[in-house]
Design a protein around this nucleic acid. Structure first.
Lengths: 358, 358
DNA sequence: TGGGGTCTTGCATACGTATTCAAGCTATGT
DNA sequence: ACATAGCTTGAATACGTATGCAAGACCCCA
């Protein structure tokens, strides 16, 4: 280490920014370390322009870069946001992640990204993430036990769930209005004259799948449609494919399927077509999310959108709020989705039908 | 701050891990701070089991979590790897990212993720990433100027390019063998009897697109096929869609299209079908990447795979190597892809045809 | 019984920056 | 010319952990 330092002195003009500290810069510029720090502090308060010039010149020559770790240490502020994601590959989330990154970087926050491996729950990841003194934690595509959530947030670090809800815990969340979305799907399919409806669920213990199903079921019940079937799915293409085919084996096969997300809907369409069933002529399919692939020509999936941009904006606002005042009571924001009409549901191309029920 | 501390003393049993330091734990356990540190150091060297018990008990009661930032400060080791990604949404990269995360977490590295916004080149992001003292930097789906790469790596931080190459710089990279892939595509299409070939390019200044085209062109030339056409693309569904349709306007439309990635190939298929052209009966389409969607029933895309898992393994090995010995010379590893036969190229279902040329 | 070794523990310090406090300097107004 | 205020600068310290060093405790064997 000492030898390094000597070397750096000898070759001061090289780009060895490794191990160049504000002290080195200070020496070379003939000022104190404090001054160097002030020059690099945002706002550069009260430094004469002549000195600032000298300092910048020296840093340039030495290849100095402020050490962010040391700064965190000193200011006790990391400006780092942790994002926990169980699944990135599910096609809805890459867009979410990218958007989060851009928005957070725009307000000078960096992102530490965690993912849970198969044998690992998100709960186990929390303590790890917290060691990094993140300013806040955004959890998405993951189910969190309420105990873990409560423990974390009572530790003082704001936790915000994106697209998941923990009922009783002291945790904020931003969520699509899945209940309303489920109802909307029911209305759309009934209004367009379908008579035997089916639902393909996502991962069972997720609030998204549960709420979408509940909204769907509730609305069907309200409108007097008791006769609908259900299949389990896992939010994957393959599970949608298999579930749809299994639905064809019903004594009276459904003429419309509501899938808990778009990927399963796409899988369902392919599964149906592989059996020679036409979509939407024989069976209509409606999804949820409005991922980019839903617009692909081969599918043209009618679906219910998640307004991702808006959801992310709200998540970040909520996060900043809670960083400011961590002890305010929590709230859950619901963002309504919209019906995106393409051509996988029949009798719908002319727009929404009248709403029959009250 | 002082008031906080007082409060924490009063309610020592609460879960206020905020501001609980090793010193607090030490006091409560009646030991020195060093001892607490030793208990939490990996390996817990040389601490009597009785004392360790006491310390763990105290930390539990206080809700102590070691401060990772301070640890980095002290050890001068962050165990953080920076990943720079220009585009996450392009369907190939979410899988890459998830895999990287899992592998890195498995070796106790955390990931700081950066993305470039539209008006920002990756070069601008480098200094930022370096401030965080990352142990290494992985750059993917992004083009890096060789100057920036050289400057960074000469600063002592290993930089590894994933799926991109910078020719002359002092930077390692792991890359699909795009040249061989392009040649393979040419062979496949010629062997299966196609006579008018086309290529749809990706983003022009990327080494991936350039190499795939070069390999394709070279092989066609070797086999005496000079008559092929080319369209520009941008690695997106829409650009593939448009390019394919534009190819139909040729006086002699192609009977086979090689697309620089799968997304464009999928777009191309939809573009062709929208014009009533059958795939593969009228026009064959072959892609590159083997993303999950290539296997979807509606497309069944024949393509050339990128062996992502293997590439990632190699990237991480290379990274660890360079963290160990940063001054070794650089190398570029090429991972050969494989032909994945589905049904978007005709006359290919029986397997590879004979290789005609030498 | 004593000497040497091992194990355990505490003290002191380092990591690189931000920031408080005080001191020096300059300019201004009377 | 002198007092005062404002601006600029440096010295000192804090942030929370890891670790080298030394001292103490304990054990073993001769």
């Amino acid at each position: 280490m000492v030898r390094w330092r000597e070397k750096a002195n000898k070759f001061q003009l090289s780009i060895m920014n490794r191990n160049v500290t504000s002290i080195d810069v200070a020496k070379r510029a003939g000022v104190s370390q404090s001054t160097v720090s002030r020059v690099f502090s945002s706002g550069s308060p009260n430094v004469s322009s002549e000195v600032r010039e000298r300092v910048l010149q020296a840093s340039l020559e030495l290849g100095y870069r402020p050490n962010a770790i040391a700064r965190m240490m000193s200011t006790r502020q990391t400006n780092i946001v942790g994002i926990l994601m169980a699944t990135i590959t599910s096609p809805f989330y890459p867009y979410v992640l990218e958007k989060f990154l851009k928005e957070l970087q725009a307000i000078d926050r960096q992102v530490l990204l965690f993912t849970a491996s198969e044998n690992q729950s998100v709960d186990d990841l929390l303590p790890l993430a917290l060691q990094y003194q993140v300013d806040a934690l955004i959890i998405t595509s993951a189910t969190l036990s309420s105990e873990a959530a409560a423990a974390t947030s009572s530790g003082g670090t704001p936790v915000i769930l994106f697209n998941r809800v923990v009922s009783d815990a002291n945790v904020c969340s931003v969520c699509a209005d899945n209940l309303a979305g489920g109802r909307l799907a029911a209305d759309v399919l009934l209004d367009s004259g379908h008579e035997k409806l089916a639902f393909i669920a996502g991962i069972e213990n997720t609030s998204t799948s549960q709420d979408r199903e509940r909204g769907f079921a509730l609305r069907l019940h309200e409108r007097g449609m008791a006769n609908w079937v259900r299949r389990a799915g896992r939010y994957t293409y393959e599970s949608g494919y298999a579930a749809a085919q299994s639905l064809l084996d019903e004594t009276v096969p459904p003429d419309a399927i509501f899938c808990a997300n778009d990927i399963m809907a796409i899988g369902a369409i392919d599964g149906l077509r592989a059996r020679g069933v036409r979509v939407p002529d024989d069976v209509s399919v409606i999804g949820f999310d409005d991922i980019p692939m839903a617009a692909w020509g081969a599918y043209n999936l009618t679906t219910i959108s998640q307004e991702v941009d808006q959801m992310i904006q709200q998540t970040i606002s909520l996060m900043l709020e809670r960083i400011e005042s961590p002890h305010e009571p929590c709230r859950t924001e619901r963002v309504a989705g919209k019906l995106v009409i393409r051509s996988s549901v029949r009798n719908l191309t002319t727009g929404k039908s009248d709403d029959i029920a009250g």
